[in-house]
Design a protein around this nucleic acid. Sequence first.
DNA 1: GTCTATATCAAGATAGAC
DNA 2: GTCTATCTTGATATAGAC
Lengths: 185, 185
Amino acid sequence: MAIQKITKDEILLKSSDVFRVKGYHNTSMQDLAEASGLLKGSLYYHFPSKEMLMKDLLVSIHTYLTNKVFLIAEDTSLTPEERMEKLLKKMGKLLLEKEGGCLIGNSILETVGVVPEFQSVLKVIMDDWTKALQTIYVTRKSSEQSFRLAQQTIMEFEGAVMFSKLYNERQFLYEAFARTMIKLK
Amino acid sequence: MAIQKITKDEILLKSSDVFRVKGYHNTSMQDLAEASGLLKGSLYYHFPSKEMLMKDLLVSIHTYLTNKVFLIAEDTSLTPEERMEKLLKKMGKLLLEKEGGCLIGNSILETVGVVPEFQSVLKVIMDDWTKALQTIYVTRKSSEQSFRLAQQTIMEFEGAVMFSKLYNERQFLYEAFARTMIKLK
DNA sequence: GTCTATATCAAGATAGAC
DNA sequence: GTCTATCTTGATATAGAC
């Protein structure tokens, strides 16, 4: 029994950076192995295929967001503005402000309709993200309007991330954050 | 000299559908050849590489948008509302409402930072799209505000296309169109 | 659990016949 | 201009040693 060089979760963490920057189809098992400090063949001890590795990654992102980020929306010890700001900051650090943009947004455009395995996880992430924002907006607006606002907010974020990537200029995302705070008023 | 089975432009047209639905890296020359009714090797008579084929496609899209769509914004025989509506309808048909979403948006997320050849064309398309919308907004708002509004409008469109793709529901895009008409007021 | 080695296949691309 | 045939590479994935 050889020494445990790296855990499954660590491989997923390293892989997420590669997928985000290079894209799903353009990333090889070779790339992922290098990022993890393993050799190509060793990855197949942890994951049966590149597709399952990616799916595990998406599920683990969903789990993390659910347990560590989205529940900020329900923290009644904070004002709605404070909740919104705290949630946006975390989403920024975890997903939106990273090099290569948003792994979730990238994956939606690249894989929906092409790799059916991923679609349901991607949907659930977006559903729960929407619900979290709705929970904050609903302190000030109707349930229906909050739902729409939540969706529009995420759309703006993803569009802003696209612009940030194209023009290599993070300001687009920060301005979208600022507009979101205004929408809450 | 054999019969001309297909022209360069026809290959680009067929290829755009494949790239949009399957993505750039996930599309093979085989796929493009099939879509064009040719065999793989024959494509290399028309284009030196897959990368150059894609670049030609992006340039031809930019040329078409410049000559047939963006100049609607300057048609002073129409009211700003009429110009906006006409331009949005055309952009919808050409780019946004298609199966697989928006080829330009897809390509930005998939290739910027990975295939440097494409970035400048993608930028110019977004620049000119922004300018066109700005030209319409500026009839009602300041130059600076029109520029911001134009950028935000496109971000919203791209975000809406992402949602439309994920949830297989075009309504997201149509609602973004409606919000754009309201912004002009 | 990670390594080395390898099987298998599909990709991008080229050469030459027609 | 398109075809057939082929080269070369790099990809996913597996087998077995350590």
